[in-house]
């Protein structure tokens, strides 16, 4: 028996953060696509940023644990509607940049340019892409030619 409203579920979900970027909530990251509160159970539709993301199981568990007090919970991985960068909220973008991640200029459907966005340390645009791949599937590596610091880029996929 479920005794909770959809809004209350969303409110609870806002407490959960990305296991690898703890200042970013799952809701701001945009990986929670929908919440359906039924009589028998709560269904949460989840869409990972990368299909091979090893943090998916952890996030799934976090959601189940957080909502378990409300009734039976099912987290469904939604493959039919993939995650895209436009699912990041404005606050999510801010949190990513405060955590030291650069966001590419173009968050649209196509990757149009190789050079990443402004340096998250000094704001310079004189940056170079060092590696399209980084410490996790969703990150790439950049270098700032002005402040001479490396930085991470949150990939557009």
């Amino acid at each position: 028996m479920v005794r909770v409203t959809e809004a209350e579920v969303w409110q609870a979900l806002k407490e959960l953060t990305d296991p690898e970027i703890p200042t970013l909530t799952l809701v701001d990251l945009g990986v929670i696509r929908a919440v359906e509160v039924g009589d028998e159970k709560i269904v949460v539709r989840f869409t990972p940023t990368f299909l091979g993301c090893p943090a998916v199981d952890r996030m799934k568990r976090d959601i189940e644990e957080r909502l378990s007090g409300f009734g039976p919970v099912e987290v469904v991985i939604d493959y039919a509607h993939p995650w895209t960068p436009d699912r990041l909220s404005e606050n999510g973008k801010l949190m990513l940049s405060l955590a030291g991640f650069a966001l590419p200029d173009d968050l649209g459907a196509e990757v149009k340019r190789e050079a990443p966005a402004a340096c998250p340390h000094c704001g310079s645009r004189a940056t170079t892409l060092i590696n399209r791949f980084g410490p996790t599937a969703c990150r790439a590596l950049g270098y700032c030619n002005d402040c001479r610091q490396p930085f991470e880029i949150f990939k557009v996929v």
Partner: peptide, 11 residues
Amino acid sequence: LAGAAEKIRRE
């Protein structure tokens, strides 16, 4: 499968 294909192509 269609949604997954879209995601895979982006990666």
